[in-house]
Design a protein around this nucleic acid. Sequence first.
DNA 1: CTGTTAGCGCGTTCAC
DNA 2: GTGAACGCGCTAACAG
Lengths: 342, 342
Amino acid sequence: MQGKNYTMHDIARLAEVSVATVSAVVNNKGTVSQKLTARVQRAIAAVSFRPHRVARGLRSGRTHLLGMVIQDLTNPFFTEVIRGVEDAATKHGYRIMVCNSNCETKTEREHLDALRDDWADGVLLAPCDSYAARELPIRSFAPLVFVDCVPMGMKVTSVITDNFGAAHEAVRYLIGLGHKKIAAIFGQLIHSTILDRVEGYRQAMKESNLVITEEYPRHAGSFIESGYQCAMSLFQSPDPPTAIFAMNNRMTLGAIRALRELGIVCPERVSVMGFDDFEWAAVFDPDLTAIAQPTFEMGTEAVELLVGLIRSAENAEEAKPQQIVLKSSLRIRGSTGPAPKG
Amino acid sequence: MQGKNYTMHDIARLAEVSVATVSAVVNNKGTVSQKLTARVQRAIAAVSFRPHRVARGLRSGRTHLLGMVIQDLTNPFFTEVIRGVEDAATKHGYRIMVCNSNCETKTEREHLDALRDDWADGVLLAPCDSYAARELPIRSFAPLVFVDCVPMGMKVTSVITDNFGAAHEAVRYLIGLGHKKIAAIFGQLIHSTILDRVEGYRQAMKESNLVITEEYPRHAGSFIESGYQCAMSLFQSPDPPTAIFAMNNRMTLGAIRALRELGIVCPERVSVMGFDDFEWAAVFDPDLTAIAQPTFEMGTEAVELLVGLIRSAENAEEAKPQQIVLKSSLRIRGSTGPAPKG
DNA sequence: CTGTTAGCGCGTTCAC
DNA sequence: GTGAACGCGCTAACAG
């Protein structure tokens, strides 16, 4: 049923050389004569031999495997980051093991353990809880780079978006449109990303002497349903906002649905600003104004950082935590407009 | 910098037993005395030892790794399938290596080769080209199960949706609403899925003696942009359709955007039926009628099939190709309605 | 330049 | 019940 898996011994026998010679050819050591090299290569091609990664890793200590543990595979934000990771990793000769924690710290931990069992050469982690992440073994079996979200109040090697600045800019844009009653809706406050965004929102409001009505900031899980619930309750209050700033792509959609159900026209009566742009944002009616994060770049930068750490570790160098902060960009579309008069 | 990786020898020394005893404890052989077992377990816990998967795999020949090669990680259809795969794989003690071919046969091939290097115990494949897939080494290093899309005209082990039946049912539903001019738009005809859907559409039209105007079936890549282009050109024809059947989630969105730009009201003037339901379909205005595939189940079924094949292979049993065909379901929402009069 | 040898960490015989 | 020895496929060290 299955094709045979040839080993170096088979090749050595076929080419009538020793296994060490085969190994040298396979690894381009450049120490083998033209003639033998050709003979070995012919034998390799004849049976389409490929060296066994497992055995190779066992001996060399390096597996050329990187692990990536993410919060949620079904969120397009992460799949785009992964594309960047794949791209850069392939360039450096690494493979990627994508692990989905499904926003469960227990699963996240299991994946990290499994990557340890695999002897991954390095790990990228988008933790699902910035508080719980402080307990994680940062200096464990392999270098670790945090992506998108970081442990609270710790200096770690990471690649993140300037969430504070992005939120600040977005709110200033809304204020520039004449909005004074701007409500933020967000998920549980356990991600450094969301916390930074909320800070940016607060700061921008404060700078313009705008009040954050107590009922305005709403939170629940970062789902469509919670965005819907938040928006619904906001518009049941006596003094509803004229702008909603949703701090997550799914919550944005929930808010949009709520507005439609309530018959509240967007952007004439209420503007909607989303965090995270995505391929389909332009298909909605109105098309969504949103903050676009540099997802692909985030993935590539994270791999570059990680590969650097792996190299340092090999040379027994001590590398200090390095943070890369990427700029986002505001994509202005149809869901935001001037604040209604009166 | 990095924590030390302990080996069985370390544990043996710590627990003052032999490595074989440690191995027996680790693998629950049940042949070690209570006392020694406890001592070994204490030593394991003390340094949080974990057996090296790589070395283990080298010896046993099994890696407990499954590979999954998919067309496009950014398509929610696949991420949901992956969730099912992860679920079932974990249950059976397998890990998953997700590989994204990005709809390139070359990349697909490279991933399959890499999985061979990894000695994956089995492979799940959603090929990006049903014709090219016929050249793939079906009987190679490990059992292979096709998912979603299969090589043209070959009997292979696979889990797919009843695409013909789904499309047939969808078109019959539109016909039941009084539509006669129903246009199908689809991507390149290189996927067995799309081919089956088109066949279902044709068959349903034929059964009701409806003509498929030559200009109606349109094709290009399965992108938002191509859906947009298809819809645009359909409505520049002298006799435009009253219903559009988009055979892919992205094309559906493109069609929606085109209708909005042209000011064509949906569903009053044109109904839109999509293939592939997704989380956000209900947020659009109007919310989208679509055929929902059993994505999660597709993933779990594929793993069950694959695990079965792996077991058979271990027992040197010859298993014949087994096809699982799953039923889809029609989610009727607001984008479809009665055909306009006259 | 090439071949021989010894292990990488683990699992699986066998003796004891 | 337990321990010593061997081998999985490969690479690093050394010998020739």
